[in-house]
Amino acid sequence: MGLLQTVNHNFTQKFFENGDFNPLIGEIYNENKNESFENPNQNLDNTNLNAVYLIEFVPPFFKLKFNASKGQLSSFKYTYFKGFMCDLRTSKSLDDYMSTQLGKKKKKVVLSRLRRLETCFNIEYKTFYGEIKNDECDALMDAFNAMIKKRFNQRGDTHSSLKTWDFYKEETAALIRSNKACLFVIYNDNTPISISINFLFDNVFESAISSYEIDYAKFGLGNIIVLKKLEWCFDNCFNFFNMRYGDYPYKRMWCNTVFEYDSYVVYKKSITKYLKAFVVTKKNQAITYAILNKDKFKALVSLRSKLKGKSNNTSNADVEQPKEACFKALDNFMESNYKNLVPVDIKGDEFAFLRKPIFDLQYSQASKTEDMACFKIDNNTYVAKNTKTNKYFILELA
């Protein structure tokens, strides 16, 4: 192990998801409930006490007391990344919370998209908590995995949960049956279009991983599944809805509490380990600061380049983004004039690329799936028809 290397432990993932207490921890004080509970696993026989340990992502409402069975452990504590949470204790209902936190305008937008989703599709909401069949859970987790990959491929990124997906696939059903986890699913005609896995401890609801079919992006499924989970929290007496780390606009919109995760650099008392732990702490604080302020550093680099008369030709802002294909209104269209008009089924893989344009059209027209028909004129030209209003729309691919 290198001079400044540490043994790392993500407290949030290990504690809430795996139910794993690091043996270095002797006791945890829960400020939310004003109570302490001991670690049932305090056996340090297999723990290398010559190493320095980094226990990170500890929510501030948990205070750690370290195991003293093999001699005194000491620690340096510092704040880490921001966390985002909905404290529901001061709200009587979901409607009350949304009115206070989102405000009239944003609340109206979210509820409007919810109504539009339910108008356009045959929507069903289901929460798996306490009971789920193994084969159903396996099928949902496979669909969930595919959703995450599809969404993050679109963003040119990889979701960190995929690195430990085997754990989620193998353990979720058992965790649901023991009331330690729940799955939220939004279905359209019995097909999952949004899935979220969440972990539960006392009155804390940990919103862990969520994703949705990107073809439905227009309907704001991300906000709708947050709304439905918050509704469940109110119905089931959960006071804290924790959306964890990751600073995104939708979290700031929903959350009334922004906190900082704590990190502990833990070591067995000695001069050499003290010095190593001190340097590790300062190094990690510097790294955290750099990550949190990366936009400022980018701005400084950009300003410096401009002052030197240089331009950044590779900037994303200078790259023209491709426009999404969309249907446009078509006047005076006569089906009888097109003998080669071929009906297409967007449910099949061959015409899957038409789903998002069709769903976007449904959103704008507030039209039901059964009222929409789609036809192919040629490989680059497609026509959609609202059979209820008899209106036509054309899609021309480049």
Rank of each mutant, 00 (worst) to 15 (best):
Q5P: 01
N8T: 02
F11M: 03
N18R: 09
D20F: 00
F21S: 03
F21D: 00
N30M: 02
D45M: 00
N46T: 10
A51H: 14
Y53A: 01
F57L: 15
F61R: 12
S69W: 01
T79Y: 11
F84V: 08
C86Y: 06
L102V: 04
K105T: 13
K106P: 13
R113I: 07
R116S: 14
N122K: 15
E124L: 08
K133F: 05
E136H: 07
F144S: 07
A146T: 07
G156E: 05
S161H: 10
T164S: 14
D166V: 11
K169M: 10
A173H: 05
A173I: 04
C182S: 08
L183S: 12
S196K: 07
F199V: 10
D202K: 14
E206V: 10
E206R: 07
S207F: 14
I214R: 02
I224Q: 00
L227I: 13
K229P: 12
K229I: 09
L230V: 09
W232V: 11
W232L: 09
D235M: 13
F238T: 13
N242C: 02
M243R: 15
Y245S: 15
V258E: 01
K269I: 06
T272G: 12
K273P: 06
L275V: 10
A277C: 07
T288M: 13
T288P: 06
F297H: 15
L300T: 14
S302F: 04
L303Q: 13
S305V: 02
G309Q: 01
T314G: 15
A317Y: 09
E324A: 13
C326N: 15
M334V: 14
M334H: 15
S336M: 12
P343G: 04
I346Y: 04
D349W: 01
F351Q: 04
D360Y: 04
A366G: 04
D371T: 09
M372C: 00
C374I: 06
D378C: 07
D378A: 06
T381N: 13
A384Y: 02
E396C: 04
